[in-house]
Protein backbone atom coordinates (compact mmCIF):
# COMPACT_ATOMS: atom_id res chain seq x y z
CA UNK A 1 0.00 0.00 0.00
CA UNK A 2 1.46 3.33 -1.04
CA UNK A 3 1.14 5.97 1.64
CA UNK A 4 0.84 9.68 0.90
CA UNK A 5 3.43 11.27 3.13
CA UNK A 6 2.95 14.88 2.03
CA UNK A 7 -0.75 15.58 1.45
CA UNK A 8 -0.26 19.24 0.50
CA UNK A 9 2.16 18.47 -2.30
CA UNK A 10 0.19 15.42 -3.29
CA UNK A 11 -3.04 17.29 -3.89
CA UNK A 12 -1.25 20.21 -5.51
CA UNK A 13 0.25 17.65 -7.88
CA UNK A 14 -3.16 16.13 -8.53
CA UNK A 15 -4.52 19.60 -9.32
CA UNK A 16 -1.70 20.30 -11.78
CA UNK A 17 -2.22 16.93 -13.43
CA UNK A 18 -5.95 17.54 -13.72
CA UNK A 19 -5.44 21.00 -15.23
CA UNK A 20 -2.72 19.78 -17.56
CA UNK A 21 -4.73 16.76 -18.64
CA UNK A 22 -7.89 18.77 -19.18
CA UNK A 23 -6.03 21.39 -21.23
CA UNK A 24 -4.40 18.67 -23.29
CA UNK A 25 -7.79 17.06 -23.91
CA UNK A 26 -9.57 20.30 -24.78
CA UNK A 27 -6.62 21.49 -26.85
CA UNK A 28 -6.29 18.31 -28.88
CA UNK A 29 -8.33 19.83 -31.72
CA UNK A 30 -6.06 22.86 -32.18
CA UNK A 31 -3.59 22.47 -35.01
CA UNK A 32 -0.17 21.67 -33.58
CA UNK A 33 1.99 22.82 -36.48
CA UNK A 34 5.74 22.34 -36.53
CA UNK A 35 8.56 23.89 -34.55
CA UNK A 36 9.32 26.37 -37.30
CA UNK A 37 5.67 27.10 -38.00
CA UNK A 38 3.82 26.75 -34.73
CA UNK A 39 0.09 26.25 -34.86
CA UNK A 40 -2.41 27.51 -32.30
CA UNK A 41 -2.15 24.20 -30.49
CA UNK A 42 1.62 24.23 -30.05
CA UNK A 43 2.06 26.26 -26.91
CA UNK A 44 -1.00 24.81 -25.14
CA UNK A 45 0.27 21.28 -25.75
CA UNK A 46 3.79 22.09 -24.57
CA UNK A 47 2.53 23.85 -21.47
CA UNK A 48 0.08 21.05 -20.72
CA UNK A 49 2.84 18.47 -20.85
CA UNK A 50 5.02 20.66 -18.65
CA UNK A 51 2.19 20.94 -16.15
CA UNK A 52 1.65 17.19 -16.22
CA UNK A 53 5.36 16.72 -15.59
CA UNK A 54 5.37 19.14 -12.66
CA UNK A 55 2.29 17.46 -11.22
CA UNK A 56 3.99 14.08 -11.59
CA UNK A 57 7.10 15.31 -9.81
CA UNK A 58 5.01 16.70 -6.96
CA UNK A 59 3.05 13.47 -6.59
CA UNK A 60 6.19 11.34 -6.68
CA UNK A 61 7.84 13.55 -4.11
CA UNK A 62 4.75 13.48 -1.91
CA UNK A 63 4.96 9.69 -1.80
CA UNK A 64 8.62 9.71 -0.91
CA UNK A 65 9.09 12.62 1.49
CA UNK A 66 6.83 13.60 4.34
CA UNK A 67 5.35 17.06 4.79
CA UNK A 68 2.65 19.00 6.63
CA UNK A 69 -0.98 17.87 6.49
CA UNK A 70 -3.71 19.91 4.80
CA UNK A 71 -5.53 22.11 7.28
CA UNK A 72 -9.21 21.46 7.64
CA UNK A 73 -11.20 24.34 6.26
CA UNK A 74 -14.82 25.19 6.71
CA UNK A 75 -16.99 24.65 3.70
CA UNK A 76 -19.70 27.14 4.56
CA UNK A 77 -17.81 30.43 4.03
CA UNK A 78 -16.34 29.22 0.76
CA UNK A 79 -19.71 28.13 -0.57
CA UNK A 80 -21.45 31.36 0.31
CA UNK A 81 -18.67 33.62 -0.98
CA UNK A 82 -18.66 31.77 -4.29
CA UNK A 83 -22.46 31.78 -4.33
CA UNK A 84 -22.40 35.55 -3.83
CA UNK A 85 -20.31 35.97 -7.00
CA UNK A 86 -22.62 33.71 -9.00
CA UNK A 87 -25.69 35.53 -7.69
CA UNK A 88 -24.19 38.87 -8.68
CA UNK A 89 -23.29 37.63 -12.15
CA UNK A 90 -26.82 36.36 -12.70
CA UNK A 91 -28.52 39.38 -11.19
CA UNK A 92 -26.55 42.28 -12.67
CA UNK A 93 -28.00 41.96 -16.16
CA UNK A 94 -31.46 40.69 -15.29
CA UNK A 95 -32.31 42.71 -12.21
CA UNK A 96 -30.02 45.69 -12.41
CA UNK A 97 -27.31 47.11 -10.17
CA UNK A 98 -29.24 47.97 -7.01
CA UNK A 99 -30.91 44.58 -6.45
CA UNK A 100 -27.73 42.78 -7.47
CA UNK A 101 -25.64 44.59 -4.85
CA UNK A 102 -28.25 43.91 -2.16
CA UNK A 103 -28.33 40.23 -3.12
CA UNK A 104 -24.54 39.87 -3.14
CA UNK A 105 -24.18 41.52 0.27
CA UNK A 106 -26.90 39.39 1.85
CA UNK A 107 -25.56 36.17 0.33
CA UNK A 108 -22.04 36.94 1.46
CA UNK A 109 -23.31 37.74 4.95
CA UNK A 110 -24.35 34.10 5.33
CA UNK A 111 -20.67 33.17 5.12
CA UNK A 112 -20.01 34.92 8.41
CA UNK A 113 -19.81 32.98 11.65
CA UNK A 114 -22.23 35.16 13.55
CA UNK A 115 -24.85 36.36 11.14
CA UNK A 116 -26.81 39.39 12.29
CA UNK A 117 -29.61 39.75 9.85
CA UNK A 118 -30.59 43.36 10.47
CA UNK A 119 -26.98 44.44 10.21
CA UNK A 120 -26.57 42.56 6.95
CA UNK A 121 -29.65 44.15 5.41
CA UNK A 122 -28.57 47.61 6.49
CA UNK A 123 -25.11 47.09 5.04
CA UNK A 124 -26.60 45.74 1.81
CA UNK A 125 -28.87 48.76 1.34
CA UNK A 126 -26.10 51.20 2.17
CA UNK A 127 -23.72 49.48 -0.27
CA UNK A 128 -26.33 49.48 -3.00
CA UNK A 129 -26.97 53.18 -2.52
CA UNK A 130 -23.23 53.90 -2.55
CA UNK A 131 -22.68 51.88 -5.71
CA UNK A 132 -25.55 53.53 -7.54
CA UNK A 133 -24.44 57.02 -6.59
CA UNK A 134 -20.76 56.36 -7.28
CA UNK A 135 -20.84 54.31 -10.45
CA UNK A 136 -23.99 55.48 -12.15
CA UNK A 137 -24.39 59.10 -11.09
CA UNK A 138 -20.82 60.24 -10.48
CA UNK A 139 -18.86 58.07 -12.90
CA UNK A 140 -21.54 57.68 -15.53
CA UNK A 141 -21.12 53.95 -16.02
CA UNK A 142 -23.77 52.34 -18.21
CA UNK A 143 -25.54 50.14 -15.65
CA UNK A 144 -29.20 49.31 -15.43
CA UNK A 145 -30.13 50.26 -11.89
CA UNK A 146 -33.60 48.77 -11.53
CA UNK A 147 -35.28 45.77 -13.16
CA UNK A 148 -38.06 47.97 -14.56
Amino acid sequence: MIRVKNPQDFWAGILFVVFGGAALWIGRVYAFGTLSKMGPGYLPAVLSWALLGIGGVLIARALAMSGPPIERSKLKPQLFILAAIVVFALAIERLGLAPAVVLVAVTAAFASRDLRFVEAIALAVALAALCVVLFVHLLGQPFTVWPF
Partner: peptide, 13 residues
Protein backbone atom coordinates in the same frame (compact mmCIF):
# COMPACT_ATOMS: atom_id res chain seq x y z
CA UNK B 1 10.12 25.97 -6.14
CA UNK B 2 8.42 23.14 -8.03
CA UNK B 3 5.00 24.45 -7.11
CA UNK B 4 6.05 27.97 -8.09
CA UNK B 5 7.09 26.76 -11.54
CA UNK B 6 3.81 24.88 -11.81
CA UNK B 7 1.84 28.00 -10.99
CA UNK B 8 3.83 30.04 -13.51
CA UNK B 9 2.94 27.49 -16.18
CA UNK B 10 -0.67 27.48 -15.05
CA UNK B 11 -0.65 31.27 -15.30
CA UNK B 12 0.74 31.10 -18.82
CA UNK B 13 -2.07 28.71 -19.67
Amino acid sequence: VVKAIGMVILGLM
